[in-house]
Write a protein that binds this DNA or RNA. Sequence first.
DNA 1: AACACGTGGGC
DNA 2: TGCCCAAGTGT
Length: 302
Amino acid sequence: MSAFHAVTGLVLGMTDIVPQLLDWYGRAQRDLPWRRPEVTPWQILVSEFMLQQTPVARVEPVWLAWIARWPTPSTTAAASPADVLRAWGKLGYPRRAKRLHECATVIATEHDDVVPSDVETLLTLPGIGAYTARAIACFAYRQRVPVVDTNVRRVVARVVHGRADSPASVRDLDDVAALLPDGPDAPQFSVALMELGATVCTARSPRCGVCPLTTCAWRANGFPEATTPVRRTQRYAGTDRQVRGRLLDVLRDNDSPVPRAQLDLAWLSDTAQRDRALDSLLVDGLVEQTADGRFALAGEGE
DNA sequence: AACACGTGGGC
DNA sequence: TGCCCAAGTGT
């Protein structure tokens, strides 16, 4: 087969992706609360923060309670960091909660309580990076911008490039931009791409039997294994991260400052590590020390 | 450009 | 069990 034909076949196949994916999404999409039409850009932003590295199933109940309590940036900004950290609960990576609170403050005070709609401005906000900025522009403001998360990256690696997966690359945006349909379907296409990666074209056991796409370079190539070894996942047991988690757990459970001795109970095996973890929580602004030397969640009592 | 940063479910 | 993975960001 000539290179020309190979390329032509690829291009024709790619154009079919749009209707196939949109049709599939129309019947197979999950009913996620942040996708409902009445949800505001701010509430979508909150969902995106929570979904950074955290599964949908764990986010859902927390998001529901959160937006009922703090529906806007200004109401969120008015809450204390301690209350925000508590509402975040055990979603993980509590620095995200801190940044969400900071993000609310900036939007409330500098953007008239309105979430910015352009990617450029969104990128200046705390906790918002390349993915989240585009997700908000696309899902909240219906803009035709490529949205690349881990799901999209994997689907494109497989369907377009015939590889099992691919590491993040500066070319990801161009790859996805090339697939994006013109007109109002672009945002729907992007969610559909993510949805396919999340529910069908999954990392572990892809369900190719129910895939709506008739053209897939990975399948055509015989499902080759990943060539670039995945970076070793970081251990968790025994790390500072685990210690920080234990410490925060104690603080979330106490709405008044706790003495050092009580915190020490949370990690007995390595006192130096415990001190280091506590110090890092203070540095991150997640924890504060009171005048009498006790410890509390940041802004406790505000 | 690696690495730190939580937590829990699945296999 | 222990490892993999989950809508990433900041340094």
